[in-house]
């Protein structure tokens, strides 16, 4: 790690103020992505602004048919939250499958969404559930938020405060983990709300999380795994590495989508 100055913020405003003063500063949430990156000297912020003690950034509440999760809420708290498990059980299950227990005890939803790792799980849930990412400046719909690998709509100095997830009538997340890192090699979140169906895929594309419209269309006609027969994802633009070719990833997108639909139907 390179040297940096450490700053503790007490409020979002203070954090934003510190960020505004130093273009080279980075927010520290759970640190489960930022610190490994800094340890490998791949990131070298001159200052680190710790959000750990900022009041009111962690917590889960239900507002009607929407679950609102504070940015600093840890993965383990989402996984075990009675509110989430009741309103959107698929989201709790997703959180329970991120990394390992110790990672879940520190990693946060805000950090995960802000980072938009192409293999992260939360972005798929945000996109499929049509979440709204609330920052200190504005509200950003998920469809506009994720803009390709590690790229988001966040402006410089913008801080995620909370994320609002409207509940779905049926939802499920099916993850095929990378055997080594256990991040998603392919993760598919399907959500059905009324006649609308959204299918979001993470891990597979070199453009990051995306909605698979062909599958959505097929599932809108009939929400059943059988509807996906003959629908296949294209290998173009899929990530290819030693763990899986583009073709294999495209194939897995189909398999995981079917499995997610089956699970959403409670079968």
């Amino acid at each position: 790690m390179y040297a940096f100055t450490y700053q503790r913020a007490k409020t979002v405003r203070q954090a934003a103020g510190l960020l505004a003063k130093n273009a080279d500063a980075k927010l520290l949430a759970g640190g489960q992505t930022l610190l490994p990156t800094m340890k490998q000297r791949l990131a070298s912020p001159s200052a680190v602004i710790d959000l750990g003690k900022v009041e009111g950034l962690a917590g889960i509440e239900r507002k009607g048919r929407t679950v609102v999760i504070g940015a600093m809420t840890k993965h383990s708290d989402v996984a075990t939250s009675a509110i989430v498990r009741e309103a959107i059980p698929a989201l709790a299950a997703l959180a329970d499958g991120i990394g390992d227990p110790a990672v879940r005890n520190r990693g946060t939803i805000g950090g995960s969404v802000a980072n938009n790792d192409p293999s992260a799980d939360y972005p798929a849930a945000c996109l499929a559930l049509g979440a709204t990412i609330v920052t200190n400046k504005r509200k950003i719909p998920a469809d506009a938020f994720f803009q390709g690998m590690f790229a988001t709509a966040l402006d410089e100095g913008e801080i995620i405060v909370k994320i609002a997830f409207p509940a779905a009538s049926k939802a499920s997340y099916a993850k095929f983990p990378n055997p080594a890192s256990r991040y998603a090699m392919v993760g598919v979140f399907v959500a059905k709300r009324g006649s609308d169906v959204r299918v979001a895929v993470t891990g597979a594309s070199s453009d990051g999380v995306f909605r698979w419209s062909a599958a959505e269309e097929a599932l809108r006609a009939r929400f059943n795994p059988k509807s996906l027969e003959g629908v296949s994802a294209k290998a173009d633009g899929m990530i290819a590495d030693i763990h899986g070719s583009a073709e294999y990833r495209a194939h897995l997108v189909g398999v995981m989508t079917k499995r997610a639909v089956t699970a959403a139907l409670g079968k």
């Binding site: 610190l35 110790a102 990672v103």
Partner: peptide, 15 residues
């Protein structure tokens, strides 16, 4: 009271 990876936690964050 929670398990964490001490290699991925800053000491100063544990104030």
């Amino acid at each position: 009271g929670r398990a964490v990876k001490s290699c991925t936690t800053l000491a100063v964050s544990c104030d």
